[in-house]
């Protein structure tokens, strides 16, 4: 095991959003301890919890502060975190807040829970924030390389692929690396020079663009629609950037089906993902069932958390019957 001696960029991006007293506590995490943290959960009136390799623990215990009075999060702390995370510009992130999350620099996503403000049967804001979930998504360069043989055949033909995975199993991380490999090319492989990739990054989680520059490595031939609704982004990117393949995250809405069909009619390939544990889980999602019935996808890649995030569970062909792996 390699000794980690420095904190990564995600650590510093996370510290920036914390008020001083929480930062002081988080600052005691050693680089090695930090590497194993996937989530930081803050609930009003409770101690801070961290998810370490899938197991939830109190932060003060994890850093070895058992003898001192535990730090209890108050609601003002949560409000401060949201304000700092939005760089004192809550108005810029209200559309995301309505959906229950915000994505900050380095692709760190903060889930927000509280009392929603309802207007015309729709959530218009969340006030009285009760808990936050800071999800730290890391970049693992090369993690998708073993999957590329299923996605790109020997002649360089890219398969329309659906990556299926439960939450916290590396779905976005795998998609990001697939994007990089297709864009930059990889050798030995059928596309050493790479192809033009259109990335529709609805939640800014894949490329984490800042001032138009992706903060994650998504490849040199990738054009990105950042923070843009999938349906709009997919339709626009076909017309304006003529990509060979479009990559987007978390398919599932009814409108997504039409957008995917538009992509295919334009002769562009699609690689996307959806929440689920198995292929049969997709049966509950009408739009995906329709796409499956139309044999849109040639490959289904199912991920699990058995040996850590990104574990390949199975690869199935377009019919969803023949297991390739």
């Amino acid at each position: 095991m390699t000794l980690v001696t420095q904190h990564d960029k995600y650590y510093f991006a996370t510290l920036k959003i914390f008020p001083e007293k929480i930062r002081a506590l988080t600052d005691e995490l050693s680089p090695e301890q930090w590497q194993d943290v996937n989530e930081i959960r803050l609930r009003a009136g409770s101690r801070i919890m961290v998810c370490v390799k899938g197991i939830y623990r109190y932060l003060d215990e994890y850093i070895g502060k058992r003898d001192t009075t535990p730090f209890i999060v108050c609601q003002q702390d949560l409000k401060t975190i949201v304000e700092l995370a939005t760089r004192n510009s809550v108005y810029m992130h209200l559309e995301d807040i309505k959906k229950g999350f915000i994505t900050i620099r380095e692709g760190i996503r903060i889930g927000i829970c509280g009392r929603p403000v309802i207007k015309n049967n729709e959530i218009s804001n969340i006030h009285e924030i009760s808990s936050l979930n800071v999800r730290i998504s890391r970049e693992y360069i090369g993690c998708a390389l073993p999957l590329m043989k299923y996605i790109v055949d020997n002649t360089g033909n890219i398969s329309n692929t659906l990556v299926i995975s439960p939450p916290m199993c590396g779905k976005t991380t795998i998609l990001r690396d697939i994007c990089r490999l297709l864009s930059d090319g990889y050798s030995p492989g059928p596309i050493p020079e790479g192809v033009n990739v259109g990335l529709v990054d609805e939640r800014s989680e894949i490329a984490s663009c800042k001032n138009g520059v992706p903060q994650r490595n998504v490849g040199k031939k990738t054009d990105i629609y950042d923070d843009c609704p999938k349906v709009l982004g997919m339709n626009m990117i076909i017309r304006c950037m003529s990509p060979a393949v479009i990559i987007t995250d978390e398919l599932g809405n009814d409108e997504d089906e039409k957008a995917v069909m538009n992509v295919l009619n334009a002769g562009v390939k699609i690689i996307t993902s959806s929440h689920g544990y198995t292929i049969s889980d997709m049966n509950s999602k009408k739009s995906i069932v329709n796409l499956m019935n139309n044999k849109v996808f040639s490959k289904y890649i199912v991920l699990c958390n058995e040996k850590g995030p990104g574990t390949l569970k199975e690869v199935t062909d377009g019919a969803g019957i023949n297991k390739i792996r």
Binding site: E83, N88, V90, Y91, L94, S124, N125
Partner: peptide, 10 residues
Amino acid sequence: FLGNTGLENQ
């Protein structure tokens, strides 16, 4: 209040 509410409230 600057920056800490939605657009309409601002």
